[in-house]
Amino acid sequence: MTKRTDSSERRKRRPPLVLVVLAALGLSVFVMPLLGLLARTPWRDLPTLLTSDVVVDALRVSLIASLGATAISAVLGVPLAWILARVEFRGRAIVRGLVVLPLVLPPVVGGAALLFALGRRGLIGEPLNQATGLVFPFSIWGVIIAATFVAMPFLVISVEGGLRNLDSRYEGAAATLGAGRWTVLRRVTLPMIGPSLAAGLALTWARALGEFGATITFAGNLQGRTQTLPLAVFVALESDRGAAVALSLIMVVISLTVLIALRQRWWGAL
């Protein structure tokens, strides 16, 4: 028993030192800010801060908006990914570029663009407003739209990657067995890209939760209606640093919990 452990220990080769050092530096980029946050946390006041109206309201708005954006991304993003992966058409490269644009575009620019498009006086927003009375900015819908804009690319990319890696013979086999396209999609394609879909959903949700720039530009900032956790942190940083730290801590805890939990169950695809 002991012997076996020894030999397997010996077989493990130590990774190159340079890599270990650089990797540790890389990790410190993520860990250092976290330590800074913990160092400034007013632990004694934390219970009060965490149950304050600002925090509870922001948490509620953030959860609604991030889950809403994830749901919309799934409903619209999966078909988009399917088209991109499976249909050859002219300008596909352009469409793909448009889809990933929000990844490189500063979110504030995205928010402004959304305002010009879907605002009350926007290109689409104005006729829509006149026809239906709907106003997106300064409402929870604005928050959801802004979050969807910045987060959906993660879902599309992930699902498209899954579809491209999926051996199309499985779908062919299902067709020869009498399955129509819809059945193939439902019973073969979607289940088989499950890990990619799950990873895409997790990333989309995480990105939506952290969204700031597009939200404050497009949806504004009002506690209880449009003020998400990141917005509340931003505002609180200038007035109540304790609350800002508490809010930040909540975001860290929620995100880490969800991402780690999902990683264990799903993340084979990433």
Binding site: R169, A174, A175, T176, L177
Partner: peptide, 16 residues
């Protein structure tokens, strides 16, 4: 394909 009524055993079998 779904209407052809052809049984196919694919290379590598392609079981789901």
């Amino acid at each position: 394909a779904e209407d052809r009524s052809i049984g196919v055993v694919f290379q590598d079998y392609v079981l789901f």
